[in-house]
Write a protein that binds this DNA or RNA. Structure first.
Lengths: 199, 199
DNA sequence: TGTACATCAGTGAACGCGCGTTCACTGATGTAC
DNA sequence: TGTACATCAGTGAACGCGCGTTCACTGATGTAC
């Protein structure tokens, strides 16, 4: 442990540290898989700054956690969007979106857990999460409009689909030792049975 | 706060305290909705004993948490069994079992969360949980055998159903402020679409 | 060109807290002789 | 019947730890005159 004093960022570049802090928090949350377990002091150690320096950018621990979650969420949405954009038709786009999100969740299981299960929700809302719901609903609606899925209430179908998909991801993350069936096949069954996609 | 010394249980009745401790732990876990947040000292305070007295019955904090989870799980299974036993046919039994478990989860949301999402899993297995899986699979199989659901692999169908149901309960518990559709209707859609029950 | 000063980025010591666990102990009750 | 002793149920003080947050501070860099 080198106890050297950090060389301050150049004037006007103070925000660089904010980014480093959020990046470290995201990495640690992925490992911890629990927002309550993330300590401000541990993040500061990771970035090699004094614990008090975190307060230069965040009013308290919760604000730091929220900033980390928000960054994750944006990445998760972007991952889904990119996959959907590359697909040929609405059904392929919906499937690609779901598969991409599932892959992200399995890759960053700790973050997925924090994003969906953490109790920061109880203290502050996480309004940015509604984007995900809207995207899925829109994707389902497009399938119906293109005649690729039986006409139905898109919002309800989307909720059922998201519910099942979340359940699947959560179970696999929370009880990784159980003998789960192949993920893609299970997702395809949900798409077929819940949305009515012909795969 | 009366600081009176507890009158010891009669000789041979030391196990009574164990029961009190587990009961308090269960109650507190339901409120906390997080096993990591349960402190041995807080449980001791709740029971009005010295923190050290917990060690008369449990080797460490984790053992206490596990004992609490086990008791919950038994209650959850029993709730499902009783509901299923009162039903007229296998389809009604499966539906009654699912509805009863969902009701229990909504009534004891903190415990449900701990049971499914806690990280005690990571440290110790919770073998007693396999009972739930077996019960659901058996219930699905009976529906198929009675011709009340299309013949299929009962284990796979049961996993899909449990996945969706868990997802539904988890979402509602974790994000109670979102506008969820009526629970029973959503469960019935899962039973109809995933199992093939005619309701 | 020199210098006083404001500003910015970051530090270090200290606070009070609750935690899990350990240790040696207490005090009532039953039992062997 | 009396008494020494073992056993059982539970206690209290102490340990070292990491935590979030507060406070007054440092030291380099740019800027006004």
């Amino acid at each position: 442990m080198e106890e050297t004093r950090r060389r301050p960022n150049a004037r006007g570049q103070g925000e660089l540290l904010r980014d480093e802090i959020v990046t470290a928090a995201v990495r640690m949350l992925d490992e911890l898989a629990d927002d309550e377990a993330l300590s401000l002091r541990a993040v500061a150690r990771e970035v090699s700054i004094a614990a008090t320096s975190v307060y230069l950018h965040f009013p308290d621990r919760d604000a730091l956690v929220l900033a980390a979650m928000q960054r994750c969420h944006e990445e998760l949405v972007r991952t889904g969007d990119e996959a959907a954009d590359a697909a040929a038709d609405p059904a392929a786009a919906l499937r690609a979106r779901i598969l991409a999100q599932a892959a992200w969740a399995q890759e960053h299981s700790g973050l997925y857990k924090v994003l969906h299960e953490s109790k920061v929700h109880r203290r502050h809302g996480m309004p940015f999460k509604e984007v995900m719901v809207a995207r899925t609903t829109e994707a389902v609606r497009r399938c119906m409009e293109a005649g690729l899925a039986p006409a139905d209430d898109a919002a309800t179908v989307a909720i059922d689909l998201r519910t099942a998909v979340n359940g699947m991801l959560a179970q696999r993350i929370n009880e990784p030792d159980l003998p789960w069936p192949p993920a893609v096949e299970q997702l395809d069954r949900f798409l077929a049975k819940l949305v009515g996609l012909r795969l």
